[in-house]
Design a protein around this nucleic acid. Structure first.
Length: 259
DNA sequence: CACAAGGTGGACCTATGGAC
DNA sequence: GTCCATAGGTCCACCTTGTG
């Protein structure tokens, strides 16, 4: 790489000031259809942090109710999410469906990019010039910040790990638990009515059907009735059923963090 | 392997609400 | 009011899966 850079730009290139840098990972999902719900999950998580998101989406149509109508869409299929400079002003985040670009595989490809600002690079101590930036220490440091930022932004929020042992903070409910609670509370206030409740909470349930199953298990005293309820809702065809999205989020997160 | 727990599908019953 | 369709809760029989 060194010789290539030299031959292209001459020796002065190493004095170039590095102002931004991108760190990327591509996560492979078991199925193309999982990418869109995965992006929904990530958007939901990021929105809890009060960050602004730029979401690029196309319309999608699911549910038999929408067969009665020609044009109207039932929801959005997210293709990419960008954040503004995050509140720490060190980094921007970009998430998108890589298989949309490449169109090569039946696996889903989720691209996770962190774009570090000059402030972000300063905090990561990667030096000012390209020569300093290219040192192994700088690159390793940036990678460790990447892991740290990913953990703080997405995982800690999902699990609500504050990393602080603040005994006064008794509120320690992970986001996925809150999602289940919302659905569960609707089941309670409607005395069941699983199909109506599912439609009310379509946006959550379509992230991962497991959320609805958990809410049913919590609501019905008899496991059997819970199973019947979610089976009938699934059979109704009104709700997009995505399975195992949250599980895959957890497993790709582990891979990213452990490097 | 055996066993338990979880999941699926069929059958039955009941409550509700609309058509007449 | 009756009649009927539908949603949804329960029970049962059977299959699948994970665990020791």
């Amino acid at each position: 790489m060194q010789t290539q850079l030299e031959s292209l730009f001459g020796n002065d290139i190493y004095e170039t000031i590095v102002r931004t840098a991108e760190v990327n990972a591509t996560a492979e999902l078991s199925n193309v259809t999982k990418t869109a719900p995965m992006l929904k999950l990530l958007a939901t998580i990021l929105l809890t942090k009060g960050e602004k998101l730029f979401i690029c989406a196309t319309g999608e149509k699911t549910g038999k109710r929408y067969e009665a109508v020609k044009c109207l869409c039932s929801g959005q299929q997210i293709e990419s999410i960008k954040t503004a400079q995050l509140s720490n002003s060190r980094v921007k985040l970009k998430l998108y469906d890589k298989s949309k670009e490449k169109n090569i595989t039946d696996k889903g490809l989720l691209r996770i990019e962190f774009i570090y600002s000059s402030r972000g690079l300063k905090v990561a101590r990667t030096g000012k010039t390209l020569a300093e930036f290219l040192k192994p220490d700088s690159i390793l440091s940036l990678l460790s910040w990447y892991r740290k930022d990913y953990k703080e932004l997405l995982i800690d929020c999902y699990w609500n790990n504050t990393d602080r042992y603040d005994l006064n903070d008794e509120y320690n409910v992970p986001v996925y638990e809150e999602m289940i609670t919302i659905i569960y509370n609707d089941l309670v206030s409607h005395d069941g009515q699983p199909l109506s409740v599912a439609l009310i909470n379509k946006n959550l349930i379509e992230i991962d059907y497991e959320l609805f199953k958990r809410a049913c298990k919590r609501y019905y005293p008899k496991l059997n009735s819970a199973q019947k309820a979610w089976a009938r809702v699934q059979k109704s065809g009104e709700i997009q059923v995505n399975i195992g999205v949250i599980d895959e989020f957890v497993s790709i997160s582990k891979q990213i963090i452990s490097g």
